[in-house]
Design a binder for these strands. Structure first.
Lengths: 80, 80
DNA sequence: TCCTGAATTTCCCGTTCGGGAAATTTTCTT
DNA sequence: AAGAAAATTTCCCGAACGGGAAATTCAGGA
C-alpha cells in the first residue's frame, strides 16, 4: 500500500512495478492504450498527466487506486 | 476506503465528501487552488482531469490516495 | 413573479499527447 | 573491461483536451 502525495510518488511506484513485471515502456504503453511518451512522462512524475490514462496504466500494472479519509454521506440523518 | 476504478467513481466520492463538508464548488475550488469548472467536471467523472489538481482536491477534502496491488521492488540481482 | 445563490456550459488559450527516430544511458555478453 | 544490444529519453509539429473566468441557466425563497 503506497501513499500517493505527489505525481512523483506515483511515477516512481509505477516504474518499479513495471520493471517487476518485466515490461518495457512500449509494452506497457501498448497494453494501457497510451503512447510511449506518456509512460515516460508519467514515470518522470509529470504533474499534468491525465487521470484517465494514469488509471489505465495503474490498472495494467495490477495496481488499484484507493481514496481514504473522505467523509461518508452528508451528516444529514445517520443511516436510516 | 473507496476503490477507484473509473473517473466516475472518484467523482462521485468527491462530491459526497464535498457536501459532507458543506462546501460549495467555488469554495472547494478556491481551497484546492483550482478552477470552479475543474471541480464540476471532476465530479461529473470527466476522464481527462489532470492528476496534479485531482490530487489537490482530494487532499483538501481530507482524502488520501493509495495504490495497492503493485509488485514490490524488481527482482534484480540482489546482494551481489 | 422577482431576487439571491449556486451549478453548469461556453469561449479562448495553453497544455499535453502522439509517432518515429536519433541520442544517451543502462545492462548484459564475450 | 570493451563492445554491443536494448531500453529509455528527447525532439518536432499538429490536433485534441483541459483550465480559468464569465455568462447563462436552474432551483429555491420572499
Amino acid at each position: 500500500m503506497i501513499r500517493i502525495d505527489t505525481p512523483s510518488d506515483l511515477g516512481a511506484a509505477l516504474r518499479k512495478a513495471r520493471k517487476a513485471l518485466s515490461l518495457t515502456q512500449p509494452q506497457l504503453a501498448l497494453a494501457a492504450g497510451v503512447g510511449v511518451r506518456f509512460v515516460v512522462e508519467l514515470e518522470a512524475g509529470k504533474p499534468g498527466v491525465r487521470f484517465e490514462k494514469l488509471l489505465r496504466v495503474v490498472n495494467v500494472l495490477g495496481g488499484k487506486l484507493f481514496v481514504e479519509g473522505m467523509p461518508p454521506d452528508p451528516p444529514r440523518e445517520r443511516g436510516a
